[in-house]
């Protein structure tokens, strides 16, 4: 039974960006307000899941040609690298650095290596959730 999903597909196109930006916001704001890599990652993947529901897996794979297994690996490596980097500077494992910079366009902002670690978490969460949903969804 093939039905015409115009409304849901159209809504999904818009809502996807809303959820995605919200997830990025939650991810970036994690250090000061509730949120962080984990929830951000989950929200991003839920945005993708919305697309999967509205279209189908193959279309979504066409739109977002991402190998989620690699994404997981990259995320893990990023987290590990962030954690291991201070060891080369003679500091203990998992020392974070932060400082305030005057960035063009954004003004005075703090940059924190914990953010890099959190991006690792974010990538892993997106990668794993999407891997699970994709494999189960494709399974006959």
């Amino acid at each position: 039974m093939k039905t015409n999903d115009v409304i849901i597909q159209f809504t999904a196109k818009i809502v996807f960006f809303i959820i995605f930006f919200f997830s990025i916001h939650i991810f970036l704001a994690g250090h000061y307000t509730p949120g962080g890599g984990f929830v951000g990652g989950l929200l991003t993947s839920s945005a993708i899941v919305l697309l999967v529901l509205a279209f189908d897996i193959n279309t979504v794979r066409h739109i977002l040609p991402i190998n989620y297994t690699y994404l997981t690996a990259i995320g893990l490596l990023l987290a590990l690298a962030t954690a291991a980097f201070p060891m080369f500077m003679g500091k203990p494992f998992f020392t974070h650095y932060f400082n305030y910079f005057d960035l063009p366009l954004l003004g005075k902002q703090s940059l924190h290596t914990a953010m890099l670690f959190d991006s690792g978490v974010y990538l892993v969460v997106v990668g794993v959730t999407m891997t699970i949903i994709q494999t189960i969804g494709e399974d006959e």
Partner: peptide, 30 residues
């Protein structure tokens, strides 16, 4: 730690070690 969200700072900074292995667990499960 230069942060405001205690939970998140604990997760990624004070006790980031746990988080590192938790995301590893996630990866393994996937």
């Amino acid at each position: 730690a230069g942060g405001g969200n205690i939970v998140n700072v604990i997760l990624v900074d004070y006790r980031g070690f746990d988080t590192l292995f938790e995301i590893t667990v996630l990866g393994i499960a996937g």
